[in-house]
């Protein structure tokens, strides 16, 4: 094998490759259809909107990597609550932005602690725990952010929508965040512990890994990132709205699955999240460009998720 071939072979093994390839082809199909018009604009939009799925997707990916039964259903409620709370505290004042960010992150940390407390104290599966807490926090968000939609401080709004040579600043920051989280995943004791627990929790315990603490930290991490996402999304979309988190329950899980992370746990990759987020947005754009309605778009999205999991996911039971 020549070195180039070997590099190509190595590349083909990368689980995130397919998400990027799919995103690229969908983008190509779109611009072929439009005759090259708006090719860059579509990419810019994809980067901007993909950012939010990636932020929550990172948290969800860490949780899912903990192994079967682990999933965070409280992400939408956390986003909404964090967005509403921070917008209200900042009250459109630029000087309060930092405080607002702290509030959003604080909301996330609290939700995470609450989630894990439920899991541990009530000994219930994480799905039920995060489901129940999502009810509570969704309500808290509604009650707290009632009434008029509070606008974000101008500087925050400007920052979240600003671009450098066509690239959204937010996307650049999220890429940096993704890189950091990838390093955490592969290069720190905590990240290794998450992956180890996802593969074999008993063996992890016998290998001196603190299973309880790792799970706790992971649920807090997921909720904190949801809080952060609620904060920037509120800035981006001109204020917190009560259903702004809704689509991110599905989106956060979808980007994890399409991005090549194993739903059975123990195997994760960050780049795939970006590939999947871009793909999901570009797919919708392509179907839009083709003049297809919302119905077809949703059906396609769903079928793609199922196909990906069927092809990549389970092992045959051999019966």
């Amino acid at each position: 094998m020549t070195p180039t071939l070997r590099i190509a072979a190595r590349l083909l093994e990368k689980p995130w490759l397919w998400a990027f390839a799919a995103a690229f082809f969908v983008w190509l199909a779109t611009i072929v259809f439009t005759g090259g018009q708006g090719a860059a604009a579509v990419l810019t939009a994809a980067l901007a909107f993909g950012t939010f799925s990636v932020i929550v997707g990172i948290g969800q990916m860490y949780v899912i990597t903990l192994g079967p039964g682990n999933v965070d259903l409280s992400i939408p409620a956390t986003m909404t609550f964090a967005g509403a709370a921070s917008m209200k505290i900042m009250d459109t004042q630029d000087s309060m932005i930092f405080i607002g960010l702290l509030v959003a992150l604080g909301v996330g940390v609290s939700v995470g602690i609450f989630n894990y407390a439920l899991i541990r104290l009530l000994r219930i599966p994480p799905i039920i725990a995060t489901l129940s807490s999502s009810f509570v926090f969704q309500s808290a968000a509604i009650a707290y952010g009632r009434g008029i939609k509070i606008k974000p401080p101008p500087v925050l709004a400007e920052f979240t929508t600003a671009r450098i040579v066509g690239i959204p600043i937010l996307a650049i920051f999220t890429v940096i965040l993704a890189v950091i989280m990838a390093v955490v995943l592969h290069k720190t004791v905590y990240g290794r512990s998450v992956i180890a627990i996802g593969q074999n929790p008993r063996a992890a315990g016998f290998s001196g890994i603190s299973v309880g603490f790792t799970r706790f930290a992971t649920y807090v991490l997921s909720a904190t990132l949801a809080g952060l996402c609620g904060f920037v999304l509120s800035g981006f979309s001109g204020g917190a709205s009560l259903n702004m988190g809704a689509e991110f329950l599905l989106a956060s899980i979808a980007v994890v699955v399409i991005g090549g992370t194993s739903v059975a746990g123990g195997f994760a990759n960050i780049p795939g999240l970006w590939g999947a987020a871009l793909f999901m947005f570009l797919l919708v754009t392509m179907l839009n460009t083709f003049g297809l309605g919302a119905g077809i778009r949703l059906i396609m999205t769903g079928l793609i998720i199922i196909s990906v999991i069927t092809l990549a996911g389970g092992k045959s039971t051999g019966r």
């Binding site: 992956i195 593969q199 063996a203 016998f206 123990g266 195997f267």
Partner: peptide
């Protein structure tokens, strides 16, 4: 050192 390799020892994806 686990005896039941599959359930107590191996991390199969590593």
């Amino acid at each position: 050192v686990a005896g039941d390799r599959q359930t107590d020892g191996i991390f199969p994806l590593w």
